[in-house]
């Protein structure tokens, strides 16, 4: 059974319904990320789990118990805020010790555990500083230590790295993942950064408009997006509609396309990454999976060129490491290898 499950959760702010009949299950020890553009409801989901927002209907079940109406301060959850939310009037030590003090932990034990935790996040010697005297990365570590020291049943992180510079972000996400695995902590992580999310998570929830588009391992999401939205999110830029005719799949202008999988669908929309289309000279012997095209704009990207090409079926973006830049207006052929084509559900 799942450690945490959200059953038919509905959350609204006034007239604005953010989540509607939302369902999600998370297992013990899992690192699950909620990924999506701003406004997709990922932060609301996290805040509902924490108890900062009250669901209009539905249940939150944690360790087999109904947690829906348990007051925030009675749950043993750790939370890392986007802006850290450190107590500005308290020292680093007091910030980290706060949760333990609330639990009336004996003073000696508080000292020991805070010290251990500061060591774990690499802040020994900073105990007496105030948050204002720390760098962004150090504040982030304090926020993490404060959430970890209470040995939370569940760790919740709300875009914790978004205020750090790029290099520090990579460093911190490795660190967070290490600590999470070391402590075997069930973690829910909110982010809008795809790379960050894939690198850190066991499973990823891709969200849009308050609904789950896909919930799976990062590799699966990256390689096999189920919907057009997810496909676009993970870098599929080219889409093509196919229909069934005499048992074969053809484009609107009658060119046959062979696919890796043959799902039973009335209508097929397929997605291809710019890197996965092959540019050929006109006049090859292959006819299936090939479209003729004309180069409109070319851009030099460094390791390759990016071509915006025009076909009878619309525009495509193709990345290719051609030796020379293909001139604008030149005729080419695009080959779509069947193992690179994904069938996706159309966006509504």
């Amino acid at each position: 059974m799942a450690l945490l499950s959200l059953d038919d959760l509905t959350v609204s702010y006034g007239d604005n319904t953010v989540l509607e009949n939302f369902n999600l299950e998370i297992n013990q020890g899992e690192f699950v990320s909620l990924l999506g553009p701003s406004g997709c409801g990922k932060t609301t989901t996290l805040r509902a789990i924490a108890g900062f927002v009250n669901p209009g209907s539905g249940r939150i079940v944690f360790m087999g118990k109904d947690y829906t109406n348990i007051p925030v301060h009675k749950k043993q959850f750790g939370f890392v805020f986007q802006n850290y939310a450190l107590f500005p009037h308290m020292s680093v030590f007091d910030n980290v010790a706060f949760g333990l003090k609330m639990q009336k932990t004996p003073v000696a034990e508080i000292k020991k555990r805070v010290q251990e935790m500061l060591e774990l996040v690499g802040l020994e010697g900073f105990a007496q500083r105030h948050p204002g005297e720390l760098s962004g990365g150090q504040q982030q570590r304090v926020a993490l230590a404060r959430a970890l020291v209470i040995k939370p049943d569940l760790l919740l992180l709300d875009e914790p790295l978004s205020n750090l510079d790029a290099k520090l972000r990579v460093e911190m996400r490795v660190e967070i993942r290490n600590i999470q695995q070391q402590l075997n902590l069930t973690t829910v992580y909110v982010t809008h950064d795809q790379e960050e999310c894939f690198s850190i998570s066991d499973r990823v929830v891709v969200m849009k408009d308050g609904k789950i588009e896909q919930y799976d391992q990062p590799e699966v999401i990256y390689r096999y997006p189920m919907t057009e939205f997810v496909a676009r999110f993970v870098g599929f830029e080219n889409f093509l509609d196919l229909k069934e005719k005499d048992g074969r799949l053809v484009t609107n202008n009658g060119i046959e396309f062979k696919l890796d999988r043959n799902d039973e669908l009335a209508k097929y929309r397929v997605a291809v990454r710019p890197d996965d289309i092959v540019i050929k000279e006109v006049g090859g012997d292959r006819t299936a999976n090939v479209l003729t095209a004309k180069v409109k704009i070319s851009t030099f990207l460094g390791k390759e060129y990016q071509y915006l090409v025009e076909t009878e079926l619309g525009e495509f973006v193709v990345n290719a490491a051609t030796v020379n830049r293909i001139k604008n207006g030149e005729q080419i052929e695009l080959y779509f290898p069947e193992e690179n084509i994904r069938i996706v559900k159309e966006a509504l």
Binding site: F52, H73, F77, F79, F81, A85, L86, R146
Partner: peptide, 8 residues
């Protein structure tokens, strides 16, 4: 909110 989630 941070104070509340840590038990106050």
């Amino acid at each position: 909110e941070a104070a509340v989630i840590f038990g106050a």
